[in-house]
């Protein structure tokens, strides 16, 4: 059920075609592995979503300032003072692998 005022969203907009290769590149940027079996369906679904959002291109936004914060608030700053206690041990206690205060990951440099 698509409410009438919103139907236009799904009709008649140009699809910005997206190819498997492009999805692979985005997956690489996202740090998410996608298997060969999944790539077809993932591409299809993302193409549908991009088609849906593409209707924004038709809107005239000349001279409209982008809005990053709904209250147009600006980043608040605080005095540069140490306020946190060192809780390294508590934080590392929940790490998948940590030793001697260090997080362990596979070897990066040969």
């Amino acid at each position: 059920m698509i409410p009438a005022p919103f139907k236009a969203v799904f009709n008649g907009y140009m699809t910005m075609a997206i190819e498997h290769g492009e999805i692979e590149k985005i997956a690489e940027l996202s740090g998410i592995r996608i298997s060969d079996e999944e790539i077809g369906q993932v591409t299809e679904r993302i193409a549908e979503i991009l088609q849906m959002v593409d209707q924004l291109q038709a809107v005239d936004t000349h001279n409209i300032e982008p809005m990053a914060n709904p209250l147009d608030a600006i980043q608040r700053l605080r005095p540069d003072e140490v306020t946190e206690a060192n809780r390294r041990d508590a934080f590392q206690a929940i790490a998948p692998a940590a030793e001697n205060g260090l997080y362990l990951v596979p070897k990066v440099i040969e």
Partner: peptide, 30 residues
């Protein structure tokens, strides 16, 4: 979740930022 991360990464990626993210923030103001 993966789908949304991929869409978001796409919208923020080089060459698409203005057409997607910036445009959406302008319409958000409208």
């Amino acid at each position: 979740v993966k789908r949304r991360i991929l869409v978001g990464t796409y919208a923020l990626s080089a060459g698409y930022y203005d057409a997607y993210y910036n445009k959406a923030q302008q319409i958000r103001r409208l």
